[in-house]
Amino acid sequence: MRIGLFFGSFNPVHIGHLIIADTMATGTDLDQVWFVVSPQNPFKKNKNLLHEFDRLDMVERAIADNSKLKATDIEFSMPRPSYTIDTLVRLQEKYPAHQFKLIIGGDNLAQFPNWKNHEKILEYFGLYVYPRPNSDPSPLEQHPNVRFVQAPLLDISATFIRECLKANRSIRYIVPEVVGEMIIRRKFYL
């Protein structure tokens, strides 16, 4: 199978994530999209980060009705911070029959040369890139292993959702209903 890997902290998972994942899973040659829930992003320090198992639980609930989407906790047992190349190698070793592709936003493409072993990621895995607001141009746009995928231009951030919760504002329609209920019931981000 050809698997697209969608990395993120998903703190919380929201409809923007789900729309991109579904677009990749149904509008490309990918057979499935796996949400790789990252315990810690090497480029971010976030004191508002929920426990990784809570974030994984939210993702699993959000995608439960879609057989083309899956969540994985592969990074939970890896050294932290875990780097994308290390996770890709671990997944390839664990699932040698699968072909993995990395899904990133256009805003990350300009920064991609700063990633650990970015040349190896391009050579052995390749990128599926979706549009993001205010993306800077990148010299990698012409790379043969970079594929641009037409997708809705979404500007929804988990930070905005957390700010809404702290201000007691509605997050209805921004997160899946099951995720919103879980956040409220467990008093996440308050």
Rank of each mutant, 00 (worst) to 15 (best):
M1D: 14
K68L: 15
D22Q: 12
E163Y: 09
M1F: 03
R90V: 10
L50D: 06
D54A: 10
N134V: 10
S157M: 07
G106Y: 04
S138D: 03
L18Y: 11
W115G: 00
V33F: 03
C164F: 04
L102E: 02
H143M: 08
E181T: 13
Y130Q: 04
P96Y: 09
G105K: 06
E123C: 13
I174C: 00
S157Q: 01
K68I: 11
G4R: 06
R186P: 07
P79S: 10
E52D: 12
L18I: 15
L18Q: 09
P81Q: 12
A71E: 00
K45N: 12
L102H: 06
P133N: 14
I3D: 07
L140V: 07
V179I: 07
N134C: 10
L56Q: 09
P131A: 11
T26F: 13
F100V: 11
N41F: 09
Y95K: 12
R162Y: 02
Y124A: 10
D65H: 10
F35L: 01
Y173W: 15
P39C: 05
R61K: 15
V179C: 02
S138K: 05
V129G: 01
I3R: 12
Y95M: 13
K166V: 09
L5N: 02
Y128K: 04
F148P: 06
N41M: 05
K94C: 12
I161W: 01
N46F: 00
R2T: 15
A21V: 13
P133C: 11
L18T: 06
D73R: 06
R61D: 13
E52I: 11
M58T: 07
I19P: 05
K187T: 01
E141M: 12
D54E: 15
C164W: 04
T159R: 05
L18G: 02
W115H: 11
Q32W: 04
F35N: 00
K94G: 00
K44A: 07
G126H: 09
M78I: 10
L49P: 09
W34I: 03
P137C: 11
Q92N: 14
Y83A: 14
S170C: 00
Q142W: 04
L109G: 09
F112G: 03
G4S: 12
K116A: 09
W115P: 05
T23W: 00
A62M: 09
M182T: 14
F148R: 00
D65S: 15
N145D: 05
A64H: 12
Q150D: 13
H14F: 06
I15E: 00
M182R: 15
Q142L: 13
E60K: 10
V89Y: 12
P144C: 03
K44W: 06
I183Y: 04
P137E: 10
L140G: 04
A71T: 07
M58Y: 06
D31G: 15
P176D: 02
N41D: 07
V13Y: 02
W34M: 08
D155H: 11
D31K: 03
V33L: 05
R147A: 08
I74W: 01
D136C: 00
I15K: 11
A21H: 01
N145L: 05
E177L: 11
F35K: 01
G180L: 01
S138G: 10
D57R: 08
N145M: 07
G126R: 03
F100N: 01
K44N: 02
L127A: 02
V146G: 07
I15Q: 00
D107L: 13
T72V: 14
G16P: 01
F53G: 00
I156T: 04
N108V: 04
F148A: 03
A167D: 11
K166P: 01
